[in-house]
Design a protein around this nucleic acid. Structure first.
Length: 150
DNA sequence: GCCAACGTTGGC
DNA sequence: GCCAACGTTGGC
């Protein structure tokens, strides 16, 4: 079982939206590296639900992978903003996973706090910009869940 | 609103 | 294959 961090702009889709929907298909990823990571995600994997472009940005809650990757239908939809004319149904380029709400963290863990945590000094979130799906280590997961539960 | 980071596109 | 131009992400 692995851990991931998914970024979402809360104005578009927040942890509260997920809490209400219970599950959602996480699609619209159009970055190859993020896509490759999505395809590795397996049911039961843990997800840190991160609010980006928010005030403040940070980890708002937990989710889990409910269903492994399937082709993202928006890539075939000419009317979609996410339409990709170069993708084919035989060999889809873009994929998404179904995720399930687990719980909101009692304490939102903001980015400034994350930056100050020693256990996270090598975390992808803090080292690499602009990657919307990221791997998270066991130790990072534990440190963040603990910080958000205290 | 600004801008750094960085991925993608396309001319050569 | 290089690299300049351009677009997007996302923190501040």
């Amino acid at each position: 079982m692995r851990y991931w961090l998914f970024k979402s702009e809360p104005e578009t889709y927040s942890i509260d939206h997920l809490a209400k929907d219970r599950t959602t298909f996480w699609n619209g990823v159009r970055n190859y590296q993020a896509r490759n990571l999505l395809k590795e995600a397996q049911p039961g994997d843990g997800i840190l639900f991160y609010h980006s472009s928010a005030e403040p940005p940070g980890v708002a809650g937990l989710a889990q992978v409910a269903e492994a990757a399937k082709p993202d239908p928006t890539q075939f939809d000419k009317k979609s903003e996410q339409y990709d004319p170069d993708s084919s149904k035989d060999d889809p380029r873009w994929w998404g996973v179904t995720i399930r709400f687990e719980r909101k963290l009692p304490r939102f863990v903001g980015l400034p706090e994350l930056k100050g945590m020693r256990a996270l000094s090598a975390m992808v979130l803090l080292q690499r910009s602009r990657l919307s799906v990221q791997p998270v280590t066991d130790a990072e997961w534990r440190a963040i869940v603990e910080a958000g539960t205290r």
